[in-house]
């Protein structure tokens, strides 16, 4: 009987120890506030919704958001960031998209590299237009074909993207696409990290 109890307790102690090291300790030591570095502003409104759209479409299945230090890979040399990412960069994210594999490029600082929202809309609607031969799937379901009432909407995509587009119609990003692009444009972790002002 004692042997059974010892064995089962041993199993639970091992579970507990692993849990303590990887769940409890990080939640304490990796929290940069309040005495640590100054934190970036939290995501609000459209950007926050865009973050959810990013997650809902499984973008993190192909893209990482993690710049490794210069001695750990070519991330910085590739221009994916000017420094390695730090805990403070993810401070306000309840679910950071660090990623698992790079089928697409790292997006930690995509908002710094590309500042044109129409570039993102075209990429989402027809990735081949931007990167011929890419394996990125098109996200046409994030767009709507709507009747153009008079003047062409400035947010509308170039009609050449869809040869089957009937006359008088235009391709407009859905609210989800607008939010997603707002989120992507917000991804800029190139700010210098500094101690919090007292």
């Amino acid at each position: 009987m004692i042997a059974r109890i010892v064995w089962v307790l041993g199993i639970f102690l091992c579970f507990l120890f692993g849990w303590f090291v990887y769940v409890i300790i990080p939640s304490q030591v990796l929290d940069p506030s309040p005495e640590g570095e100054e934190t970036p502003p939290p995501n609000f409104g459209l950007v926050e919704v865009g973050q959810q759209v990013y997650g809902a479409n499984g973008c993190s299945g192909c893209h990482t958001q993690l710049v490794r230090p210069a001695n750990m890979g070519s991330d910085i040399a590739r221009g994916w960031g000017n420094r390695r990412t730090l805990p403070v960069d993810y401070y306000h994210e309840t679910n950071p998209f660090l990623g698992i594999v790079r089928i697409g490029p790292d997006l930690s600082n995509i908002g710094k590299r590309k500042k044109d929202s129409s570039w993102f809309y075209i990429l989402l609607y027809e990735p081949n237009q931007i990167f011929p031969g890419t394996i990125m799937p098109p996200y046409k379901y994030l767009f709507r074909k709507v009747r153009a009432e008079g003047k062409r909407n400035p947010q509308a995509l170039p009609p050449e993207l869809d040869r089957t587009l009937p006359n008088g119609m235009q391709i407009m990003p859905s609210p989800e696409a607008v939010a997603l692009v707002a989120y992507l444009l917000s991804l800029d972790r190139s700010y210098p990290t500094q101690p919090k002002k007292q």
């Binding site: 769940v23 929290d31 679910n95």
Partner: peptide, 29 residues
């Protein structure tokens, strides 16, 4: 024994305890 322990822990952390930033990634892995 491991599965209920792990999934229960995830559930509690998602709902009742605030865990964010890279600590979340640590828990995920």
């Amino acid at each position: 024994l491991w599965f209920p322990w792990a999934i229960g822990s995830l559930f509690i952390f998602f709902h009742w305890l605030v865990i964010r930033g890279v600590s979340f990634a640590s828990m995920e892995w």
